[in-house]
Each structure stands twice: as C-alpha cells, then as structure tokens.
C-alpha cells in the first residue's frame, strides 16, 4: 500500500484539472440549493437538514454516477489503464485510490451545502447542529457506498456514458425503487426461514439514512454502508484482475 498516497493524490487532483468536474459540481449545487430553498419554505422548519437529507440522497443518485463514470472507463478507453496496471502497483491500490479520490472530490462538492445551515442562522432560524452533523455523516456514508458501486460499474466498460447510466439505474434502484418492492417479495423461496420484506428493507439504502436525518448516528447503518463499500471495492479489484482470465 506504499503507492496509495501517490495514486490517491493523482485521482483526487485529476478532478480539478477537468472542466467537466466543475460543470458537475455547479449542477449539483444548483439542484441541492433549489431543494433546500423549496424545503425550507415548505416545512418552515429550521431543521431543514432532516428533510433535505432524503432529497440529497436522491440527487446523489444522479450526480455520483457523473463523478465515478470516468474513474476506470476513461483510462480503459485512452489506454492509460495499461500503463497503470503494468506499473508496480497492486490492483487493490488502484481500486482503493480511485475510490478515495472520488470520495474526496464528492465530499468537497458537498461541502458548500454546509453553508445552508449558516443561511438558516442568517435568517433567524436556530438549527440543531447535532442533527446537521449526523446528517452529513450519513450523507458521506451513503455517498461512499454510491461511489464504490459507481467505481465497479466504471471498471466494467470503456464507455463513460454507459457507466454513468448503468450506475444511475443501480443507485436509483437501491435508494428508491427497493422501497416499493419490499411488500411484494413475500413469495420468494425459503420464505419460511428468510423474512424477505425485512431483507429488502435492510438492503434499501433509504432505510439506513433515516436515523442520520433525525440526528442519530447508529453503528448498524455505518456497518451496512461500509459493507457496500467493501463489496464494491472487492468487485472492482476482481474486475481489474479479470484481464487475467478473459
């Protein structure tokens, strides 16, 4: 793992060299700003973050794929992946560094939204800062899980657009659609031993965001999101290695 800092630095800074990243960040801030404004007006609640978190989780299903699509697909397309994997660095280092680089950029992209809390205080509201922090911890955990999924999908194709669309579909499903399926999976096999609706609800990302939005940090939610990160990174490493047996 000695190369990890160098690789991560490269992945992180690469975002700042690309005009695309700023277009994404600007679009993201416009969308989240609008959500914040509408929510604040609508709920008249200084604890806007609790409701905003759900919105941001959804907005991230659109913007995280744009951040992760280039990670490996672009390198595969331009051939720099060949340079990367023939250098004396391990596939694990490559996957982890790309994950960390994208996470770093996304966290930076989210950071300006912290000012929403400041805006609330400017107009006389008294937000609960504990709730704000808990929400952001949740948002970062959720985003990390998103990124690991996006990273894996980016590693399976050389086409960034396909990677982005596929990632969006997967994220939209696990964040949003699964909520509708929970009731309709009673008929699956082994229904006597496995409580399928509970399993689907558990896998459903939204259900792990709820506590954070209330101001609660729960190890169960963190463990779940970290598990998704672990799985995503594992699959990415195997996908990088797959050149060996394909």
């Amino acid at each position: 793992m000695t190369n990890l800092p160098a690789l991560t630095k490269r992945e992180f800074t690469a975002y700042f060299y690309s005009p695309m990243a700023y277009v994404i960040a600007t679009g993201y801030l416009i969308f989240s700003g609008l959500s914040f404004y509408i929510l604040l007006k609508d709920t008249r609640d200084a604890n806007a973050m609790r409701n905003l978190l759900t919105f941001l989780g959804f907005i991230h299903t659109i913007f995280v794929p744009m951040v992760t699509m280039r990670l490996i697909a672009e390198e595969r397309k331009t051939g720099t992946l060949e340079m990367l994997v023939t250098a004396p660095v391990s596939d694990v280092e490559i996957a982890v560094s790309k994950f960390l680089g994208a996470l770093g950029f996304t966290v930076l992209m989210i950071a300006p939204t912290l000012l929403y809390t400041w805006i609330i205080t400017r107009v006389g509201g008294r937000p609960d800062y504990g709730l704000v922090w808990a929400s952001y911890i949740g948002l970062v955990c959720l985003t990390a899980a998103y990124i690991s999924i996006g990273l894996f999908i980016s590693s399976t194709t050389a086409n960034q657009i396909i990677a982005a669309i596929l990632t969006f579909v997967v994220l939209f499903t696990v964040y949003f659609l699964l909520g509708f399926f929970a009731g309709s999976v009673r008929g699956l096999p082994w229904k006597d031993t496995i409580n399928w609706p509970e399993v689907v609800t558990y896998v459903h990302f939204s259900s792990h965001l709820e506590s954070f939005g209330k101001g609660l940090v729960d190890t169960r939610d963190i463990v779940y999101f970290l598990s998704v990160v672990g799985l995503g990174l594992f699959l990415t490493v195997k996908s990088l290695e797959s050149r060996r047996w394909r």
Partner: peptide, 8 residues
Amino acid sequence: SVPLYPDM
C-alpha cells in the same frame, strides 16, 4: 498508442 494523461 503511448497512453498519457493529457491533463498533466
């Protein structure tokens, strides 16, 4: 193809 990072 001499792949390089054009942004560096």
